[in-house]
Write a protein that binds this DNA or RNA. Structure first.
Lengths: 343, 343
DNA sequence: TTGTAATCTGCAATCGTCTGCACTGGTACA
DNA sequence: TGTACCAGTGCAGACGATTGCAGATTACAA
């Protein structure tokens, strides 16, 4: 097996007949050194293509300049955007990033935290898995005084910094939009009920209904486990409701896409027969036919803000007191909820 | 600033009044130790929630059990899938993964390699940026005997292992499919010409044409720089060609999506007026209207194979001689290329 | 010639973990 | 009583980079 051998200071030192400390000082441009010695060393280091061993440096200063990121899944466009933002802004500040996916499993999430902590990351950025309904592992991090920031899928109670979207506001916006389109019987398709976003978006949905004097009808709230099969089940159930609802607001775009696809195959016309809206603004939603009304969440921005705040804390630029950053969402009205005068 | 303090062996040693070496041996379950001592130590370690410092371990054994991954962009669904595969299979074998994106810039790519190497990754998985047309940085890795595997966007000449798709075959499949649909004037929309996949897919396109006795007409090959604007330009130019082509094969799905969107806005019917096909099978392509004929590339599988081979090399399970793994693609015929008897 | 400061360089310890070797104390046998 | 052996434990050095302090060299002044 090939073993890439890295040049070390020791080797430069031997070649030049000086001590390792001198090499170290020369490369840090220390003023104590004779300029000529320094020049020679720097030259030789370049020639030998010396690259410092970050592991050794990290061990010595007890800081790895590495952050850990845990997301439910990388292949989701939204999380990929977050990662992209995190990555870019971490690099800008000289930090590397180790990324893990929990695959929506709490056990995997815990395992990820363990390895990242063992790897001596300086801080963590975590978006919780769907399964995560116990939070001991987070409190353990907290008690061990390991810096971390929660984003998007957060646990509200724990006193650490969080970056979230105004989910209530976004759901309000989209429900309000549907109401303005003269829809009155509006179904909310929720994910598992203990999910943070399920709760928040329901809140916004109910708030908009309340403003229109519509009282909460529990029959209009459907719960899907977010699998394709269950989304299809819900889609069918909705068509069988009597009277049939005017509109459907799905907690996330993928659910709306499944519903839309199922309805299309059943010959139901959107938005003529029923209006439809989602949440997230996945790339898919723009090109599907009809284009899906949704709520845009800037993932890149979220990643950027989360990592910047974490680094500010690490570098002592931000107060240690946890803060909560709430990003606003934007309604993206498209054809799937278009209002027709004659219904 | 909070500073998470990790328990070290030294602290356990002090608490138990034994030496650090004894702790180390106990935790490695060394047979030299008295079972009772061992038991006590293991117990105490658990109680104090000891976690080994991977940095120190890595430094000592000169292996970090970490791999570096460089992709052009994380937000692309295809690369996200690759990463997901890499991640899963690396973890299964006890490796962590550091991910970087080059953002299609060769300078960023070089910088990423530098940091990852400095971070002492045991190996690298690289997919080249669009800009990469010089390969010195790869040869440098090669000369320094640092293990790496290229995937998808590879440089053919360098003698390292590569994992690619049968791009020629895939392009042949899709062109053949278009030809079978009675299309004869088929445009190939290529990306920048020095891109690996541009060349390969063109090869497959020409091969299929040749089989049908159609000679290569350079006017039917359009080149886009893959930006939205340029894709739109190409889309328009195609409609102005005289005689108008029967079908268009775009090198990658996003180009086809842009073309399709532009044509729709121009009132051109697909596939009635012109047939259209892409390559990659992005999620978007399935839901766009009309659904886009394309070629499926299993990204997760590619990531899995690439990382497995790299780890096999690292662990001495695979020969050091570079190999080339070629994954087959699958034609996904959809409505955008549907054949109509009466044209 | 000696003293002293200024300049330059090396030693040694440190970070946390691992391991070859040496040491201790006990038992068994000659 | 001496020797040999064993289990059980600790010491010290290594991985690579950094840094306070001490030591060495030089130059210059007294």
């Amino acid at each position: 097996m090939k073993r890439g051998h890295q040049i070390t200071m020791k080797e430069i030192a031997k070649k030049l007949g000086v001590s390792v400390s001198t090499i170290s000082r020369a490369l840090k441009d220390s003023p104590e050194l004779h300029p000529e010695t320094k020049r020679k060393i720097v030259e030789m280091a370049k020639e030998m293509n010396y690259q410092p061993n970050l592991l050794a440096q990290s061990l010595r200063i007890s800081r790895s300049k590495t952050l850990g990121v845990i997301v439910p899944e990388i292949t989701s466009h939204f999380f990929a955007s977050c990662i992209s933002g995190i990555q870019d802004y971490a690099n800008k500040r000289g930090y590397n990033v180790m990324i893990c996916q929990s695959n929506e499993s709490i056990d995997q999430e815990k395992a990820n935290i363990r390895t990242l902590v063992s790897s001596q990351v300086d801080g963590l950025l975590i978006s919780l898995s769907r399964e995560t309904n116990k939070f001991d592992h987070l409190y353990e991090l907290y008690n061990r005084e390991i810096n971390f920031v929660l984003f998007d899928r957060v646990h509200e109670e724990i006193p650490v910094s969080k970056v979230t979207f105004n989910d209530v506001g976004g759901a309000y916006q989209v429900t309000h939009h549907l109401l303005e389109g003269n829809n009155r019987r509006i179904v909310y398709v929720s994910g598992p009920e203990d999910l943070y976003i399920s709760k928040k978006r329901k809140e916004g949905y109910l708030k908009a209904l309340a403003e229109y004097g519509i009282e909460n009808d529990p029959l209009l709230i459907k719960i899907s486990d977010l699998t394709l099969e269950d989304n299809v089940r819900v889609a069918r159930e909705i068509t069988e409701m009597d009277p049939r609802p005017d509109a459907v607001f799905c907690m996330i775009d993928p659910v709306a896409v499944d519903v839309l696809t199922e309805w299309k195959s059943m010959g139901i016309k959107i938005p003529e027969d029923m209006a439809l809206a989602g949440f997230t603004n996945n790339p898919t939603s723009a090109v599907i036919e009809p284009p899906l009304t949704t709520v845009a969440q800037p993932g890149y921005e979220m990643g950027k803000l989360a990592v910047t705040h974490l680094l500010d804390q690490l570098d002592g630029l931000a107060s240690e007191d946890p803060i909560s950053i709430v990003l606003e969402t934007t309604l993206v009205p498209r054809k799937s909820s278009q209002h027709f005068q004659v219904k």
